[in-house]
Design a protein around this nucleic acid. Structure first.
Lengths: 225, 225
DNA sequence: GAGAATATAGAACAGCGTTCGATACGATGC
DNA sequence: GCATCGTATCGAACGCTGTTCTATATTCTC
């Protein structure tokens, strides 16, 4: 049943997961679902936990590298991948305050990497919280349903970005010099690049705090300048 | 009318803003609201834009400092303040993809600060996006309604945090060394401290990228170690 | 075979956003 | 003075939602 629920979420997003839709898919009655799950929220909770379990399993090999910060980076990127695959996942990842086992395990996994750094417990706690917050922030952005203006336009995603860029470029350069300057970036940006950039800023700050040299450039990172 | 809508949001949160509740408060009929606003989503959009306008106005003086990164920091903290005051605000800040004037203006304001840094347009675009994502991530966390376990317990917020910390401490130290280590931090942490820490990591990384010295310690920052 | 635990649904309820159609009010035009 | 048109209001209904109640099968245990 959880499988079918996740399938609906994957295919049509969170609003599409109604008890009636799920019951129809299962070929059963609506009320039957309540035998297995207490509420819709609980169902979403189970779904996110299930997916988080998958990410946890898939990203396990990423935890054995010698550079703990690089490991955190790799794990975060694995999470990002899942957000792209399942936009609904990001929306609910934070819904549970770390009480679910798998979410807790992800938190623990990130924290364990940071235990190999010369930091105070408080700094470690703050650092993990920050990485999670950043990741969630990007996830929410990705999960945001496209504006209906886009849906009506019938444009391809890349084309719509170009239109958005054009709109920024058309703004008054006096009042919006920045929008004007980055209109091209807006038009051509790739989400994963943006995610990686911000993550690297955060992790560079963390390296600095831990008294490490800036960053090894050998893990597919673009040079900082 | 927008005033009353925001009042409901402030008093009882986003789910409480129903057209029927709003109509009752206005002493009118439900359908009348549709004369002024096309849908509930549009109403929420107007509300967030209105609040963002307020933050924009209040934080204007924070943009004149000599250190652009410190200015970004101050603006972000002003946003955070609003999230604490209005948890619903954070939830919807990102709902509009920068099409609303005030959200756009906030984006522009952050970007203009970064124009004073020696960065490429792409780096600037990524940096602003990252700061926004981080801020939104924290906002979402804050907006998360407290678990019903907490509501049923009747505990004060600080006490509930202590309970959560105790629970982490009770975990198997072999399997959860990190949770064990930061249980105290979890129990005693202050949200604004966590927010500030992560923001500073991000901004330190940005300073590094711009070729600046780490950070002036004179703006109320705690030393990095 | 009796009875308990497990499992399944149909029907109904209250609430939601939204739409429809009717009804006023006031200014404008002839 | 009367008709007309845009502004503004609203009661009633529609279709949808999560959820609950109650009744009924199915299966396992003694």
């Amino acid at each position: 049943m959880l499988r079918e629920a996740i399938a609906i979420l994957d295919e049509a997003g969170e609003p599409a997961l109604t008890f009636r839709a799920l019951a129809a898919r299962l070929g059963g009655g609506v009320a039957s679902i309540y035998w297995y799950v207490g509420s819709r929220d609980e169902l979403l909770e189970l779904a996110t936990e299930d997916v988080m379990g998958g990410v946890l399993a898939e990203s396990e090999p990423l935890t054995h590298g010698t550079d703990p910060v690089a490991n955190v980076r790799a794990i975060a990127l694995a999470l990002f991948d899942e957000f792209v695959r399942r936009p609904w996942f990001g929306q609910f990842m934070l819904r549970n305050s770390g009480l679910q086992p798998n979410s807790m395990a992800m938190f623990e996994r990130l924290g364990q990497q940071l235990m190999r750094l010369d930091l105070t417990p408080k700094q470690r706690f703050h650092a993990v919280s920050s990485v999670v917050s950043y990741v969630v922030g990007v996830a929410i952005d990705l999960a945001e349903p496209p504006p209906k203006e886009y849906l009506e336009s019938g444009l391809a995603p890349a084309e719509f970005l170009r239109v958005l860029g054009d709109r920024w470029r058309a703004l008054d350069p006096e009042a919006f010099p920045f929008a004007h300057q980055v209109a091209d970036e807006m038009a051509t940006h790739d989400d994963v690049d943006v995610f990686r950039s911000g993550l690297d800023l955060l992790l560079d700050g963390l390296r600095l705090q831990a008294g490490l040299r800036p960053a090894p450039l050998d893990v597919g990172r673009e040079p900082s300048r």
